Amino acid sequence: MKITHTDLPGVLILEPKIFGDARGFFMESFNQKVFNEAVGKNVSFVQDNHSRSARGVLRGLHYQLQFPQAKLVRVTRGAVFDVAVDVRRGSENFGKWVGVELNEDNRKQLWIPEGFAHGFLVLSDSADFLYKTNEYYYPEYERTIFWNDPAVGICWGIDSPVVSAKDAAGALLVAAETYALDAVS
Protein backbone atom coordinates (compact mmCIF):
# COMPACT_ATOMS: atom_id res chain seq x y z
CA MET A 1 0.00 0.00 0.00
CA LYS A 2 1.30 3.44 -0.93
CA ILE A 3 0.75 6.12 1.72
CA THR A 4 0.74 9.82 0.77
CA HIS A 5 0.72 12.53 3.43
CA THR A 6 -1.45 15.54 2.59
CA ASP A 7 -0.99 19.19 3.55
CA LEU A 8 -3.09 18.50 6.68
CA PRO A 9 -1.09 16.41 9.15
CA GLY A 10 -2.91 13.17 9.90
CA VAL A 11 -5.01 13.17 6.72
CA LEU A 12 -3.62 10.45 4.44
CA ILE A 13 -4.21 9.12 0.94
CA LEU A 14 -3.93 5.33 0.76
CA GLU A 15 -3.43 3.56 -2.56
CA PRO A 16 -3.72 -0.23 -2.53
CA LYS A 17 -1.63 -2.43 -4.79
CA ILE A 18 -3.76 -3.65 -7.69
CA PHE A 19 -3.06 -6.89 -9.50
CA GLY A 20 -4.84 -7.09 -12.83
CA ASP A 21 -4.97 -9.17 -15.95
CA ALA A 22 -7.44 -10.08 -18.70
CA ARG A 23 -9.75 -11.65 -16.09
CA GLY A 24 -10.10 -8.49 -14.00
CA PHE A 25 -8.25 -7.37 -10.88
CA PHE A 26 -7.53 -8.17 -7.24
CA MET A 27 -6.69 -5.76 -4.46
CA GLU A 28 -6.56 -5.90 -0.71
CA SER A 29 -8.85 -3.00 0.21
CA PHE A 30 -8.12 -3.16 3.95
CA ASN A 31 -5.51 -4.77 6.18
CA GLN A 32 -5.69 -3.83 9.88
CA LYS A 33 -1.94 -4.22 10.52
CA VAL A 34 -0.87 -2.21 7.48
CA PHE A 35 -3.48 0.45 8.19
CA ASN A 36 -2.47 0.85 11.86
CA GLU A 37 1.17 1.22 10.82
CA ALA A 38 0.20 3.87 8.26
CA VAL A 39 -1.78 6.02 10.71
CA GLY A 40 0.56 5.40 13.63
CA LYS A 41 -1.98 4.02 16.08
CA ASN A 42 -4.42 1.19 16.59
CA VAL A 43 -7.82 2.00 15.11
CA SER A 44 -10.88 -0.15 15.67
CA PHE A 45 -13.69 0.33 13.18
CA VAL A 46 -17.23 -0.13 14.47
CA GLN A 47 -19.42 0.82 11.51
CA ASP A 48 -19.34 0.52 7.70
CA ASN A 49 -21.54 2.82 5.61
CA HIS A 50 -22.47 2.87 1.93
CA SER A 51 -24.20 5.71 0.09
CA ARG A 52 -25.16 6.18 -3.53
CA SER A 53 -25.58 9.68 -4.90
CA ALA A 54 -26.27 11.29 -8.26
CA ARG A 55 -24.09 13.77 -10.18
CA GLY A 56 -23.91 17.16 -8.50
CA VAL A 57 -24.89 15.92 -5.03
CA LEU A 58 -22.74 17.44 -2.32
CA ARG A 59 -22.81 15.81 1.11
CA GLY A 60 -21.22 17.62 4.04
CA LEU A 61 -19.32 19.14 5.61
CA HIS A 62 -20.12 16.84 8.57
CA TYR A 63 -18.53 15.98 11.89
CA GLN A 64 -19.68 14.73 15.29
CA LEU A 65 -19.03 17.12 18.15
CA GLN A 66 -19.19 14.39 20.77
CA PHE A 67 -18.03 10.88 19.96
CA PRO A 68 -15.84 12.23 17.11
CA GLN A 69 -15.58 9.92 14.13
CA ALA A 70 -12.51 9.12 12.13
CA LYS A 71 -13.31 7.83 8.63
CA LEU A 72 -11.62 5.71 6.00
CA VAL A 73 -13.44 6.54 2.75
CA ARG A 74 -13.41 5.18 -0.79
CA VAL A 75 -15.47 5.00 -3.98
CA THR A 76 -16.34 1.67 -5.62
CA ARG A 77 -18.38 3.06 -8.53
CA GLY A 78 -18.14 6.51 -10.08
CA ALA A 79 -16.09 9.48 -8.89
CA VAL A 80 -16.20 12.09 -6.14
CA PHE A 81 -14.18 15.07 -5.02
CA ASP A 82 -13.59 14.29 -1.34
CA VAL A 83 -12.68 16.96 1.23
CA ALA A 84 -11.43 17.11 4.83
CA VAL A 85 -11.46 20.37 6.82
CA ASP A 86 -9.58 20.87 10.09
CA VAL A 87 -12.17 21.98 12.69
CA ARG A 88 -9.92 21.82 15.76
CA ARG A 89 -9.76 25.26 17.35
CA GLY A 90 -6.18 25.99 18.30
CA SER A 91 -4.76 23.95 15.43
CA GLU A 92 -2.37 25.83 13.17
CA ASN A 93 -4.43 24.36 10.31
CA PHE A 94 -7.86 25.34 11.67
CA GLY A 95 -10.20 26.00 8.73
CA LYS A 96 -7.77 24.64 6.14
CA TRP A 97 -8.86 21.89 3.76
CA VAL A 98 -7.49 19.21 1.47
CA GLY A 99 -9.33 17.53 -1.37
CA VAL A 100 -8.69 14.52 -3.57
CA GLU A 101 -10.57 12.77 -6.33
CA LEU A 102 -11.59 9.26 -5.34
CA ASN A 103 -12.88 7.06 -8.12
CA GLU A 104 -13.41 3.48 -9.20
CA ASP A 105 -10.29 3.54 -11.37
CA ASN A 106 -7.69 5.07 -9.02
CA ARG A 107 -9.12 3.15 -6.01
CA LYS A 108 -7.60 5.69 -3.64
CA GLN A 109 -8.82 5.90 -0.08
CA LEU A 110 -8.74 8.90 2.24
CA TRP A 111 -8.11 8.64 5.99
CA ILE A 112 -9.80 11.47 7.87
CA PRO A 113 -8.93 11.47 11.59
CA GLU A 114 -11.06 12.80 14.42
CA GLY A 115 -11.26 16.59 14.47
CA PHE A 116 -11.96 17.05 10.77
CA ALA A 117 -15.20 17.82 8.94
CA HIS A 118 -15.84 15.72 5.85
CA GLY A 119 -17.75 16.18 2.62
CA PHE A 120 -17.81 15.09 -0.98
CA LEU A 121 -19.18 16.14 -4.37
CA VAL A 122 -20.26 13.53 -6.92
CA LEU A 123 -18.49 14.07 -10.27
CA SER A 124 -19.89 11.08 -12.20
CA ASP A 125 -23.48 10.21 -13.17
CA SER A 126 -23.69 8.45 -9.81
CA ALA A 127 -21.22 7.22 -7.21
CA ASP A 128 -21.13 4.50 -4.59
CA PHE A 129 -19.29 5.85 -1.57
CA LEU A 130 -18.12 3.48 1.20
CA TYR A 131 -16.63 4.41 4.53
CA LYS A 132 -15.55 2.85 7.78
CA THR A 133 -15.88 4.77 11.06
CA ASN A 134 -14.20 4.26 14.39
CA GLU A 135 -17.24 5.55 16.29
CA TYR A 136 -20.97 5.04 15.91
CA TYR A 137 -23.18 7.67 14.30
CA TYR A 138 -25.06 9.87 16.78
CA PRO A 139 -27.30 12.28 14.85
CA GLU A 140 -27.82 14.49 17.90
CA TYR A 141 -24.09 15.29 17.94
CA GLU A 142 -23.64 15.79 14.21
CA ARG A 143 -22.74 19.29 13.10
CA THR A 144 -22.50 20.75 9.60
CA ILE A 145 -20.32 23.52 8.18
CA PHE A 146 -21.70 25.25 5.07
CA TRP A 147 -20.17 23.66 1.99
CA ASN A 148 -19.44 27.09 0.54
CA ASP A 149 -18.21 28.89 3.67
CA PRO A 150 -15.98 31.66 2.25
CA ALA A 151 -13.66 31.45 5.27
CA VAL A 152 -12.84 27.84 4.33
CA GLY A 153 -12.80 28.52 0.57
CA ILE A 154 -13.14 25.03 -0.87
CA CYS A 155 -12.86 25.01 -4.67
CA TRP A 156 -15.68 22.58 -5.45
CA GLY A 157 -15.95 23.55 -9.12
CA ILE A 158 -19.74 23.91 -8.92
CA ASP A 159 -22.01 26.83 -8.08
CA SER A 160 -25.28 25.07 -7.30
CA PRO A 161 -24.83 21.54 -5.99
CA VAL A 162 -27.72 19.42 -4.76
CA VAL A 163 -27.65 19.50 -0.96
CA SER A 164 -29.93 18.17 1.76
CA ALA A 165 -32.04 20.47 3.92
CA LYS A 166 -29.73 19.60 6.84
CA ASP A 167 -26.64 20.63 4.88
CA ALA A 168 -28.33 23.81 3.64
CA ALA A 169 -28.95 24.73 7.30
CA GLY A 170 -25.30 24.34 8.32
CA ALA A 171 -23.19 26.95 10.09
CA LEU A 172 -20.31 29.16 9.12
CA LEU A 173 -17.07 27.88 10.63
CA VAL A 174 -16.58 31.07 12.65
CA ALA A 175 -19.90 30.45 14.48
CA ALA A 176 -19.84 26.65 14.52
CA GLU A 177 -19.34 24.44 17.53
CA THR A 178 -15.94 22.85 16.97
CA TYR A 179 -13.38 20.79 18.86
CA ALA A 180 -10.71 21.97 21.24
CA LEU A 181 -7.37 20.83 19.82
CA ASP A 182 -6.55 18.66 22.83
CA ALA A 183 -9.99 16.98 22.79
CA VAL A 184 -9.30 15.06 19.57
CA SER A 185 -5.53 15.02 19.11
Rank of each mutant, 00 (worst) to 15 (best):
A22K: 14
V162Q: 05
A70P: 02
P16Y: 02
R107K: 15
G90L: 12
P9R: 01
R107F: 14
L173H: 04
Y137H: 04
A22H: 15
S53H: 00
R143I: 06
H118K: 02
T6H: 11
R89L: 09
R59L: 02
D159K: 05
T76A: 13
D159I: 01
E177G: 03
T178I: 03
V85I: 14
W147L: 08
L121P: 01
A70F: 03
N134E: 06
W97V: 00
N148T: 03
K33D: 15
A169Q: 07
G24L: 04
I13S: 01
A168P: 07
V184A: 11
G20R: 05
Y138H: 14
Q47K: 10
S51H: 11
W111P: 04
E37H: 13
Y136E: 09
R89Q: 09
W147I: 01
E15D: 06
S51T: 15
S124A: 14
F35K: 11
A165Q: 14
L14A: 11
K166F: 00
P16V: 07
L58S: 00
D105Y: 12
L14G: 10
E28T: 05
P9Q: 05
R143S: 02
R52S: 15
E142V: 04
R74C: 15
F94V: 07
W97L: 01
R88S: 08
N93I: 08
G119V: 00
V152G: 04
D167K: 03
S29H: 10
I145K: 05
R143M: 12
E92D: 15
N148A: 05
A70Y: 14
V39Q: 15
Y63W: 02
H118V: 03
G10N: 13
L110C: 14
A169F: 08
D125L: 07
E142L: 09
I13L: 12
R143F: 04
G153H: 07
A180E: 15
V174L: 08
V98T: 10
I18W: 00
L123T: 10
E140V: 06
L14N: 14
S160I: 00
D86F: 03
F129R: 02
L121N: 05
F120V: 07
A84S: 02
